[in-house]
Design a protein around this nucleic acid. Structure first.
Lengths: 235, 235
DNA sequence: CACCCTTGGTACGATTTCGAACGGATCGTC
DNA sequence: GACGATCCGTTCGAAATCGTACCAAGGGTG
């Protein structure tokens, strides 16, 4: 008989050695987040760290004029916010729930305690930070080199992977903010994707019809980030 | 009589507690890098880590079509490459010397040994990674929201701070690659900055005439990154 | 001094994206 | 079933940026 091992639903946690997972359940509060619910604020002390289960969180950089641009997308492959694994209780960025779902929430004190007391835990978190850094860098290049259509397809591909469902809710307006472009720019791109047969789109609900086509329409940044996160879980 | 304490010229190292600095000299080889000399390659094992003294290094993301975009600038406030502080001997990105000068070079094995054996060393490195992450995220937003003129001014401001001299060498062509734009785009912006009286520019040599004006022409991202790196050294 | 190579000023039309606005369609609510 | 709010398709001219190309000036080299 195999021993029952707690499974949180977050890949980062579930990839930890059994010793770390044994007492994990007590440190995690399962919280269901509504779409657009904020989870961290830039410059504020973090009270907790979130390990998404089926929620998708977005990390954004906010400019002085109020514009926000997405600088990271986090699903069950990661956690929010990276700063906690870099010896800081302050979040440098704002984050919120992009697609409704559950997260495993750990108090910052328990997180920090695990960081100091478990080498395997600390390494697992840092490997994820590494992928997040890679991802932010990739976005920097992507934002200046790829078209709105490519970036839309990239975003939808990344989100589909994280949601784990071909359908999820998202308005053009919101996606435009994430990509740092105008709303009609997204509408045009979304329409093009619809005409291609890659997706259908209706009143804030996306459905991916042809995943391969969607992925192929996305720029290389989709695969690059996917591989970076996969590698960070594997190694 | 105050004890003679080794000073490397790199702020990150010189900000370490005395215990860490005591035997630092033996682990550092002072290397003078020529402009455009590569120091790390994406996907390759790192042999060493560089702590710039008066050199300025650039970290770039390279796309499949060969285009490179700068995703990090590193002077004496930091080190290259962050991945070493994130439990990985592999560099995720390519880096090279942007402005000729000296770096303190430490073998990856000595670096890793210090990371495991000195908490203060590890914390100092991770605080810098945190600033690098912030910076990469800021670039992502900047690249999609700010004009070429603003980004040129940002780049020149950042580099002037790191070089520690009002004059340094840099061609329009190279700056265009870093910013991910066309060379004539940079020429126009550089010309505008020259007409404003912020800089002079001639055959690959920039001279900053009016630092305040240059900084003011730059987007907020200049100050944001500056503060992030300053805070990472202070805390 | 003649040459060549690097550097950067400038111009061209093409393309993308912008900012702003209008209007139609769908949905929830009363 | 009427209403208001949300969502999105579409359009407009304006602006930024692109890709490409050509040429002039400066500097190094032989």
């Amino acid at each position: 008989m195999t021993p029952r091992v707690y499974s949180s639903g977050n890949q980062l946690l579930d990839g930890l050695p059994q010793a770390d997972r044994a007492d994990l359940e007590a440190d995690l509060e399962i919280v269901t987040l509504a779409a657009h619910k904020f989870t961290q604020s830039a410059g504020r002390v973090m009270d907790y760290v979130d390990f998404p289960i089926d929620a998708v969180l977005s990390v954004v950089a906010t400019l002085k004029n109020g514009d926000s641009v997405e600088v990271g997308t986090v699903g069950s492959e990661g956690f929010v916010e990276s700063d906690a694994a870099l010896d800081s209780p302050f979040s440098q960025r704002t984050s919120f729930c992009q697609v409704r779902g559950r997260v495993g929430r750990m108090s910052i004190s328990r997180f920090e305690s695990r960081m100091t007391n478990s080498g395997s835990f600390a390494r697992q978190m840092r490997r994820n930070v590494r992928a997040s850094l890679f991802s932010a860098q990739q976005f920097a290049a992507c934002n200046v080199k790829h078209s709105i259509l490519q970036r839309c397809a990239r975003w939808l591909s990344m989100t589909e992977d994280r949601v784990g469902s071909v359908e999820f809710t998202l308005t053009h307006d919101f996606l435009a903010i994430m990509l740092g472009v105008r709303r009609p720019g997204v509408s045009e791109a979304a329409n093009a994707l619809q005409k291609l047969g890659a997706i259908t789109y209706s009143r804030g609900a996306v459905r991916v019809l042809d995943r391969a086509l969607l992925n192929a329409t996305a720029c290389e940044c989709y695969q690059a980030c996917k591989h970076a996160f996969a590698a960070s879980l594997r190694e």
